[in-house]
Design a binder for these strands. Structure first.
Length: 182
DNA sequence: ACTCCGATTGTT
DNA sequence: ACAATCGGAGTA
């Protein structure tokens, strides 16, 4: 379950949303389970809903949700169809297209540290809900392998339940990590 | 129909 | 510390 969240560290995300080109290196991820994970949007309450239906779809697609009614956040669906598992992309290091990202972020910094900031920098909105991440305008590519040595692990951030599960992963000493564990 | 509240961020 | 801002989920 957390294998994909680990493997996604070091991967490359290419956005050509709106014609602007931006490339980032994923440095922070967080795993969310299906019905059995109380912190997940796929937690068994009402099963599949309008919001979480992409989580139960085929893997490799985008699950985008509105956070606090204000920000968009981007997940990669990781489980088999019907499993409801996804990995939240929480932070990244800007590689290319810095200017496009600065414009989308209205000059604020950091550019990509934090799920809301990352999505905003890449131009991700609900228009990309369910988008297959194998093709434009949002492509996820294999990048670098992050060794255990360089990988940090902590509990999940911001969740009210099951926060103690060590399902957050990040690259030590890398830019784009939203917040370090105490 | 009405309430509560969150996988966050930016400002006070 | 607190506001912004809105849809999902529970209750009625």
């Amino acid at each position: 379950m957390t294998e994909v969240a680990r493997a996604l560290l070091g991967s490359v995300l290419l956005s050509t949303v709106g014609g602007a080109r931006a490339i980032v290196l994923v440095t922070e991820t967080e795993a969310y389970g299906g019905a059995e994970d109380p912190a997940s949007h796929a937690a068994t309450r009402s099963g599949v809903t309008q919001r979480n239906r992409a989580m139960f779809g085929p893997p490799g697609r985008a699950y985008v949700y509105r956070s606090y009614g204000v920000h968009w956040c981007l997940n990669v669906v990781t489980g088999a169809e019907g499993a409801g598992q996804a990995v939240l992309l929480r932070g990244a290091a800007p590689l290319e297209g810095l200017e496009a990202m600065r414009i989308r972020r209205s000059g604020r910094s950091p550019l990509c540290a934090g799920p809301g900031r990352l999505a905003e920098a890449l131009g991700v909105t609900d228009a990309l809900y369910g988008h297959p991440l194998g093709r434009a305008p949002l492509v996820l590519l294999p990048g670098w392998t992050v060794t255990e040595e360089r990988m940090g692990v902590s509990g999940r951030i911001g969740v009210g339940v099951a926060a103690e599960l060590p399902w957050r992963f990040y690259v030590r000493d890398a830019p784009g990590v939203s917040r370090h564990p105490r």
